[in-house]
């Protein structure tokens, strides 16, 4: 079946692709201060970068395996929570990624 460019599925897929790279940047930026998963998700949502659990937690694990984040379990309000924060490597990568993003943004603005 042929889809028109206005088909919601097409837009959603392209939007997802566009947001995927930005989400990594947003997560890294947000974790300049320590947070656990649930509060991180809420913070991102409040800033217009909503992300579901199924995407956030695997992403956090991937970033941690790449040594961009560090995490530790701590008890808060009698519940165990896993806190994440940016590692020194993560800080460096975030700085580079932000410069790259700003460069892309400038280029796109020029094109648009």
């Amino acid at each position: 079946m042929a889809h028109s460019p206005e088909t919601p599925g097409t837009f959603d897929n392209l939007r997802l692709e566009l947001r995927r790279g930005c989400l990594v940047l947003a997560v890294l930026a947000e974790l300049r201060s320590e947070q656990y998963g649930y509060t991180l998700r809420k913070a991102l949502g409040e800033r217009g970068m909503a992300i579901d659990e199924g995407t956030l937690y695997p992403l956090l694990r991937r970033l941690e395996s790449q040594r961009l984040l560090v995490s530790e379990w701590r008890e808060v309000d009698k519940r165990n929570k896993r806190f994440y924060r940016l590692s020194p490597d993560g800080k460096l990568i975030l700085k580079q990624l932000l410069a790259e993003w700003q460069s892309i943004n400038r280029s796109l603005n020029g094109i648009l």
């Binding site: 998963g37 649930y38 659990e53 937690y57 694990r61 379990w73 519940r79 165990n80 896993r82």
Partner: peptide
């Protein structure tokens, strides 16, 4: 290898919700 760790984190999130 990650079963327990993931489940605890996911459980925490859902309980918070």
């Amino acid at each position: 290898m990650q079963k327990q760790d993931i489940i605890e984190e996911l459980s925490e999130d859902i309980r918070s919700q």
